[in-house]
Design a protein around this nucleic acid. Sequence first.
DNA 1: GATGAATGAGCTTTCATTCAT
DNA 2: CATGAATGAAAGCTCATTCAT
Lengths: 210, 210, 210, 210
Amino acid sequence: MEKMSTEKRSEILDAAIKLFSEKGFERTTVDEIASKANVGKGTIYLYFENKEHIFLTIIEEGMSQLRRFFQQMSKEENFLSLLRELIFSYLKFAEDNREIYRLFLKERLAMRLFDEDTLGRRFMEMHHELHQFMTEFMQRGMDEGALRPADPGYLGMALNGIISHTVFYWLFTNEQQPLTGLTDALYRLFLTGAANDFNLNISGGVRDVS
Amino acid sequence: MEKMSTEKRSEILDAAIKLFSEKGFERTTVDEIASKANVGKGTIYLYFENKEHIFLTIIEEGMSQLRRFFQQMSKEENFLSLLRELIFSYLKFAEDNREIYRLFLKERLAMRLFDEDTLGRRFMEMHHELHQFMTEFMQRGMDEGALRPADPGYLGMALNGIISHTVFYWLFTNEQQPLTGLTDALYRLFLTGAANDFNLNISGGVRDVS
Amino acid sequence: MEKMSTEKRSEILDAAIKLFSEKGFERTTVDEIASKANVGKGTIYLYFENKEHIFLTIIEEGMSQLRRFFQQMSKEENFLSLLRELIFSYLKFAEDNREIYRLFLKERLAMRLFDEDTLGRRFMEMHHELHQFMTEFMQRGMDEGALRPADPGYLGMALNGIISHTVFYWLFTNEQQPLTGLTDALYRLFLTGAANDFNLNISGGVRDVS
Amino acid sequence: MEKMSTEKRSEILDAAIKLFSEKGFERTTVDEIASKANVGKGTIYLYFENKEHIFLTIIEEGMSQLRRFFQQMSKEENFLSLLRELIFSYLKFAEDNREIYRLFLKERLAMRLFDEDTLGRRFMEMHHELHQFMTEFMQRGMDEGALRPADPGYLGMALNGIISHTVFYWLFTNEQQPLTGLTDALYRLFLTGAANDFNLNISGGVRDVS
DNA sequence: GATGAATGAGCTTTCATTCAT
DNA sequence: CATGAATGAAAGCTCATTCAT
C-alpha cells in the first residue's frame, strides 16, 4: 500500500512541473504541490531541501535529458545531417516534455541577477551550456564550409530563436500535429531562408555579420 | 506643481522597470521600488492603484511606443524594404528601451493561465497584437511573391525568434556595438538562410511547411 | 468668496457627524471628512488637533446641548412634572440631533479601557455625568415619595434604557411621526408599567430592589 | 489530535472575545489576539478565514446560546411566568457570558450601513431576530390580556432597554452580587412601573401609545 | 490661512519551513 | 518514513499626520 519512496519523489516532481509551468515558480505554493502529488506537505521536505531545489531538480533532470538527446547524435556524420538531427531532437524533446519545456521558456529570464543563490547560478550555467553547445556547433558548420562565415554566437542564438519560438507557437496554439513534423521546414528555413528563389539576387547586396 | 507629480511618477516607473527586469515582477517588492525611486512607500499608491498596475503601465507604455515605431514604417514601399525597416525598428526599440525590452522577454510567459485577472489579460492581448501584426506582414510577403508559401503564423514566429534571441544575446553579453548594426545580417539570414551558396542545391529536397 | 473660519469649522463637524454616525469612528477616514466638507485635508488640522479631537468636539458640543436642555427644566416644579419634561427633552434632543444621538449610541461602549487617552476619558466622564444626573433625579423622586424606594442607580439606568431603546427603534425604523409624541407613553410606562390593571395584584408578591 | 485543535480554536476565541469587548473590533489587532491566545499569528488563519470571521463566529455562537436559553422556556405556562423566566434567562446569559454580552452591547450599532458585507448583515439579522422574538412575545402578552394594548415593537424595545441597561450598569460597576438577583425587581418594574402606589391615579390621564 | 502631495508606521494576510507525533 | 498543525518573517496596502507651497 505504501508507495516506494522513488514513486513519491517523482509524483512530487510531476506535480511541481505541471504547477510551475502553469503558474510559474513564485505563484505555486508548496501546499499545492503536496496536494496535487497526494502527499503530505512535510513529505516534500524529506525528498527536497526546499522549494527552490524542486525547481532545480526539474531543470537539471530536464537538462540532462536534453543533453542525452544531443549526445545521441552520431559524431561521424557531416554537419548538415547533424543539424537536421539537432533540430529534430530539440523538437522531439519539447514534444515529449511539453511541461518541462514550457517551464524552461517561462523561467528562462526570471532568474537573472540571482547569481548569488544556487538556484539562479545553476540555471544560468545550464543556459550557458546550451548556448555553448550551439555556438560550437555553428563554428563547426563554418569550419566545414557548410555555413557562411558569421558570428557563431549570434547564429546559434538565431537557430535557437527559430526553434524555440516555433515551439512557443505550437505550445500555445495547442496544435495536434506532431511538432517533429516541422523539422524539415525549420531546417530549410535556417539554411536557405524564407525568400522565394527569384529574390535571392535582390538581396545580393546584403553584407554578412562582421 | 503638476511637473513634480509627473517627475515622481516617472521616477517610480524607472525604478520599477529596472527592478522588474532584473528580478521579475513577483520577486520585486513595493518597498524596493519605493527605495530605488527615493520615494515613500505610500507615494507609490498615489500614482498607481497597486503593484500590478505599475507593471501594466510599463507594458502599455512600452507597447504603444513599439506600435508607434511600426506605424512609422511607410505604407507604400515594397515588402522587402519594409521588412528591413521592421527589423531595424525592432532592434532600435530594444536598443533604446533595453530595460523595458528585457521586461517583455522575462514576463512573456509568466502570465499565462492568469487570463482571469486584468494584468494577465492585457499582457496576453499585447502579445497577440504583436503576433497578429507579424502574421499579417508575412502573409503580405507571400501575397507579393517575396516569400515562399508557408504558414504565416510560424514564419512570423520564426522572424520574431531570430530577432528576439539576437536581442537576448546582445542584452546579456552587454555588447557595446549598436544593436541596429545587426539589421542587415538578420535581414539576410531570414531571407537567404545561413548556408553557404554551394549548399543550396543540397537542401533542395526540403519540403515547405504545409 | 472665502468662507469664514467658523463656517469651515462647522462644515467639518457636520461632515464628521454624518460620517461617524454612519460608519463609526474607526471606519471613517480624514479624507472622507475633508471631501464631504468640501475642504482640503490639511485644513482640518488647522481647526482640530487630530481625528480624535473632532470626535471629542462633537461629543462635547452635543453633551453641552443636552445639558442645556436639562437645565432649562424649571427647578420649582414637582418631580412628576419634571420627569415628563425630562423625557420630553431627551426625545426632543434625539429628534433634533438624530445624527449626534446615533453617534452617542454607537460609540458609547467602544471607548472603554481607553482610560489612558484623553478621548476615552472625556467620553466616559460624559456618560458618568449623564448617569449621575439621572441617579440624583431618581433619588429626588424617592425623597419626594413619588417613586418607590429602590436603588436609584438602577432606576436611572432603567429609565435611560427605556428612552434610549425607544429612540433606537425610532431611528432605525425611520418613523416619520415625531419622536416627542411618545413622551406620555414612556412617562406612563415608566411610572405604572406595562401590565393591565387587573394584573397588579398578581404581581403583588414582587419585592423591591434591595 | 482533534482535541488540541479544538483547544487552540477556543483559546483564540476566548482571547478575541476579551479583546473585542474591551477595545472593540477595529482597535483589536490580530497580533494582540495571537499573543493573548499564546498562539502564532499564522495559527489564527488555520482556524478562521480572517479577522471578521472570528468576530462572526463569536456572535453566532453567543447568539445560538442565547437562543437556546429562550427555547428552554417552557411553552405551556402563562405569559407572566414566561416573562419572569425571560428576564431571568436574559440576566443569566449576561451573567454567564459577561464578555460576549459586553461585545454585543458594544458592537450593536457599529455595524450599521455595512449591510453589504457578510459580517454586518449577519449581525443585523441577529439583532432583528432578537427584536422579532421580543415583539411577538409582547403581542402574546397583549392577546392574553396581561399587557395593556400598545405598540408591541416599542414595548419589546422598552423591556430590552430596561434589561440591557441594567446589565450595562452591572457590568461597569462590576457588582459582585448575582445579576439574576435583579430578576424580580425588573419584572415588577416592567409590569407595574416605578411609581409609588398613591401616584397611580395622578398618572391616570396618560394616554397609551397609539 | 488653505492646500494636497508626501510619508511611514502599522495593519491584515500569506506561505515556506519546522517538528512533535 | 510520513504527516499536517504551528509558526513568524515578509508582503501589499491604508491612512493619520506633516509641511512646502
